[in-house]
Deep mutational scan, measured.
Amino acid sequence: MALNTPQITPTKKITVRAIGEELPRGDYQRCPQCDMLFSLPEINSHQSAYCPRCQAKIRDGRDWSLTRLAAMAFTMLLLMPFAWGEPLLHIWLLGIRIDANVMQGIWQMTKQGDAITGSMVFFCVIGAPLILVTSIAYLWFGNRLGMNLRPVLLMLERLKEWVMLDIYLVGIGVASIKVQDYAHIQAGVGLFSFVALVILTTVTLSHLNVEELWERFYPQRPATRRDEKLRVCLGCHFTGYPDQRGRCPRCHIPLRLRRRHSLQKCWAALLASIVLLLPANLLPISIIYLNGGRQEDTILSGIMSLASSNIAVAGIVFIASILVPFTKVIVMFTLLLSIHFKCQQGLRTRILLLRMVTWIGRWSMLDLFVISLTMSLINRDQILAFTMGPAAFYFGAAVILTILAVEWLDSRLLWDAHESGNARFDD
């Protein structure tokens, strides 16, 4: 018995066209964080690309023209004298008006014999932002004059995390709450300039795509075929072959399989920071003279006294001054041990922890910024005066060393310790 099946006739004509040209192939790229070699397709503007294995951002879609970056830099340069030299806060102490600005706080630190601690604050609040705007201006002028731009481009990517104007702005709020127990506070004209400078700096850093600047100024022929001998440069993120001198053909720094002496430098910085954190938390970090009496505060006791007036601000200072430094030390110690013992479990967790400490590390400088600003506000000789204690130097040095330890660690070593050939990683 035959089955009668109805015929289905399409209502619209289906047209099949042959592909007349070869589909576009992607360029081969190595991930600078996990060293995976993959094919990167062509990316349009405002599109980002991520590593298929570790999800690290390979290409950032946010990109401004150099002219727009230069305009932002010149605007920031105009704001800087007002943000640093004009009063941020006014207080009335014992019937006398006192003005506080950024430069005055750094000068008070240096004047009291601790120039190293003052230079830490100076670099993060004044030096690094000033280098940022002058570097962008150098790129703008240098591109037109045919100057060598490689050193500036190499420095810009590392400079971003040292620009800490946003953290200093939080420190202004913390210092205001600490001082309000002794005097009446009012915002100064410099505060508005400083807030504007923070906003412009944040926007500029978020749109400063150094890798795209490398592509514009020093374009290189990408690798179009897969080759395990391809290496990625950690300076400019170019994937290719080393030249005859073993250097990256684009930025001219040595092109090595792994960062040289990464573990040794990381261990040295980490152990030194552990040693410095002990006096930083045991010795007094601030000293207040009130009517001839002397009151010393460690980091913890200062947080407890701050909690009596504002528990939320005390929580912020606790996280930045105690929780973050010790968390960074514990995480980095764990990561280094996992590399030495070739741990194969929990790779995803370790990668996330490394990215976390990379982002939060700079916030530990908050305590030094609060001390710097408070020193310029309260300084009335023996009637009422505020000065920093010996722990300030140890704390600042420990924070900087932990930042350097994270920067010096080559994250690809975590993958080397893991089993080879993993296309995915999980716990």
Rank of each mutant, 00 (worst) to 15 (best):
N4A: 08
T5E: 08
P6L: 09
Q7D: 10
Q7S: 11
P10K: 07
P10V: 12
T15S: 12
R17A: 13
A18T: 12
A18K: 08
E21T: 09
E21I: 09
P24M: 07
R25D: 10
R25M: 09
G26N: 10
D27V: 14
C31R: 00
D35C: 07
P41L: 11
N44A: 08
S45Y: 15
S45I: 12
H46C: 13
S48M: 15
S48I: 15
A49G: 07
A49Q: 07
R53M: 11
R53T: 10
C54Y: 00
K57D: 05
R59Y: 12
R62N: 15
D63H: 15
D63M: 15
S65E: 04
T67I: 15
A70Y: 14
A71E: 01
M72G: 04
M72N: 08
F74T: 11
F74R: 00
F74D: 03
T75A: 10
M76I: 10
L77S: 15
M80N: 05
M80Q: 06
A83S: 07
G85R: 14
W92M: 03
L93H: 01
L94H: 01
G95F: 10
I98S: 08
D99V: 08
D99I: 06
N101G: 05
M103Q: 10
Q104E: 06
G105C: 05
I106V: 09
I106Y: 12
W107S: 15
T110Y: 00
A115H: 05
T117D: 01
S119G: 02
M120L: 04
C124A: 06
V125P: 04
V125T: 04
A128M: 03
L130A: 11
I131A: 03
L132C: 07
A137H: 13
A137S: 07
A137G: 09
Y138P: 02
N143M: 14
N148C: 04
R150G: 06
P151Y: 02
V152Q: 02
V152Y: 00
L153S: 06
M155T: 03
L159Y: 00
K160Q: 10
E161M: 12
V170P: 12
G173A: 07
A175I: 02
S176T: 07
I177G: 11
I177R: 04
Q180C: 14
Y182W: 08
A183W: 10
A183P: 01
I185Y: 08
G188S: 08
G190N: 03
L191C: 09
F192Y: 13
F192V: 08
L197K: 01
L197Y: 12
V198S: 14
V198M: 13
L200I: 08
L200Y: 15
T201A: 08
T201N: 06
T202N: 15
T202H: 15
E212D: 07
W214H: 11
W214N: 08
F217Q: 10
P219L: 07
P219A: 10
Q220M: 05
Q220I: 08
R221M: 12
P222L: 07
K229Q: 09
G235E: 04
T239P: 03
Y241L: 10
P242I: 11
G246Y: 08
R247N: 07
C248T: 00
P249D: 05
C251M: 00
I253H: 02
R256E: 09
R259P: 04
H261F: 05
S262Y: 01
K265F: 01
C266T: 08
L271C: 14
A272C: 04
I274T: 08
L277K: 08
P279N: 07
S286I: 03
I287D: 03
G293I: 11
G293T: 06
G293N: 04
G293Q: 06
E296W: 05
T298C: 12
L300T: 03
S301I: 07
G302H: 01
M304V: 04
L306K: 00
N310E: 15
N310F: 12
I311W: 11
I311A: 10
V313W: 07
G315F: 10
V317Y: 02
V317D: 00
I319Y: 04
S321V: 02
P325E: 00
P325A: 06
V329Y: 04
M332Q: 07
T334D: 06
I339D: 09
I339M: 07
H340F: 11
C343P: 14
R348S: 11
R348A: 12
I351R: 14
I351V: 12
L352A: 11
L354P: 12
M356F: 13
W359K: 14
W359F: 05
W359R: 13
R362F: 02
R362I: 07
W363C: 05
M375Q: 14
S376I: 13
R380T: 02
A385I: 04
P390Q: 08
A391G: 05
A392K: 02
F393A: 10
F393Q: 14
Y394T: 02
F395N: 02
G396D: 01
G396L: 01
V399I: 04
V399D: 02
V399T: 08
V399S: 09
T402A: 01
I403K: 04
A405I: 05
A405V: 04
W408T: 07
L409V: 06
D410Y: 00
D410C: 00
S411Q: 12
L414N: 03
W415I: 07
H418M: 05
E419F: 15
G421W: 12
G421I: 12
G421D: 14
G421N: 14
N422S: 09
A423P: 09
R424N: 15
F425G: 12
D426E: 08
D426Q: 11
D426Y: 12
